[in-house]
């Protein structure tokens, strides 16, 4: 028995991130309860709803790989949403808004990275403070009430499909594939791994540690800007509350996906499946008619159980 446990195959299986297990279990439950719901058309609609979260996770996993964290995504989403919905820029068109979101996200991300890497300030606090400031600014500008409507073309693009797959989902998976290539095929990807494993050792091996952390945060900010565009398209209205809990949920999805601070076992697809299992969890709970409190409890219990199983296994593997 112990011999079997030590075999490389079993050891590898034990390291599978919990997100895959949760996803497979939920899919099996849904398949047995409502087999007619498990098809591209229905699932596509549910998965489309978590596309902003899924995109945000791509940035989160990058900064968590270098032992940092980014909680400022909520503020970025709110600010971009405000600029699009409030009519601050009359006559602005889609390319302008895309550029605006990317510039805002990149600037915020660069600021976060500079504070974390150069000033050595706590990443939790810096990104949290940035988020609080941005939220305060937006709520002040909007006077506490929803700012207005989002131009119609955002909703139109969001509702398009390629075959039976919604475009936002394709876009999300395309970005995930890009991030996967970026981390596995570029020198920067190796720097990220090196800094995460041991920043000091990386420094003495000639890895530009500070630059790697700053760049990771900048890219995470840029991705948060893109997530803000998709989130705005998905709700199609201005809001002073949209996306506030997304960053912390993104952290949860990332850790369930097998990426922890400084460790990247789950790669890009583990966290992506973490987001997919959140979407599926929502579907399953709705199918079974769970009331709101029950949903909260089930969500908490499942996250905790998955994390405990994974934690115990990785502790034994070490």
């Amino acid at each position: 028995m112990t011999g079997m446990l030590r075999s490389p195959v079993v050891q590898r299986l034990l390291k599978v991130p919990p997100s895959y297990v949760v996803f497979a279990l939920l899919l099996a439950i849904l398949w047995s309860a409502r087999p007619n719901m498990v098809n591209f058309n229905v699932m596509g609609i549910f998965i489309r709803q978590v596309a902003p979260l899924g995109i945000l996770v791509l940035g989160q996993l990058l900064v968590m790989r270098v032992r940092s964290i980014d909680l400022s995504g909520g503020g970025v989403i709110l600010l971009v949403n405000y600029f699009i919905a409030s009519g601050t820029f009359p006559g602005a068109r889609l390319p302008f808004f895309i550029a605006l979101a990317i510039v805002i996200g990149t600037l915020v991300g660069f600021f976060n990275g500079w504070m974390v890497a150069k000033r050595r300030v706590s990443a939790v606090i810096v990104t949290l403070a940035v988020s609080i400031i941005l939220i305060g600014i937006v709520q002040f500008l909007a006077g506490g009430s929803p700012p207005g409507d989002v131009p119609a073309y955002f909703g139109e693009i969001y509702n398009t499909r390629l075959g039976s797959v919604p475009t936002p989902v394709l876009f999300w998976f395309g970005m995930a594939a890009l991030m996967w290539l970026f981390l596995s095929r570029t020198i920067f990807g190796r720097f990220v791994t090196a800094v995460g494993e041991n920043a000091e050792a990386a420094y003495f091996s000639g890895v530009p540690v500070e630059r790697t952390v700053i760049l990771s945060h900048t890219i995470a900010g840029l991705i948060a800007g893109i997530a803000a565009l998709v989130q705005t398209a998905s709700i199609s209205v201005g809001s002073v509350r949209v996306g506030l809990d997304l960053p912390i949920v993104a952290v949860a999805a990332t850790i369930l996906g097998g990426v922890a601070f400084g460790r990247g076992d789950g790669g890009v697809w583990g966290p992506t499946f973490g987001v997919l299992s959140f979407a599926l969890l929502f579907v399953v709970m709705t199918v079974f008619g769970l009331p709101e409190p029950g949903k909260q409890i089930a969500q908490g219990v499942i996250i905790l159980l998955a994390a405990v199983l994974y934690g115990v296994r990785t502790a034994k593997a070490n």
Binding site: A252, L304, A315
Partner: peptide, 14 residues
Amino acid sequence: NVHPIIATLAMQYI
């Protein structure tokens, strides 16, 4: 061996 953010966030939901 659960990360504090995950453990206490899950507990918050519950």
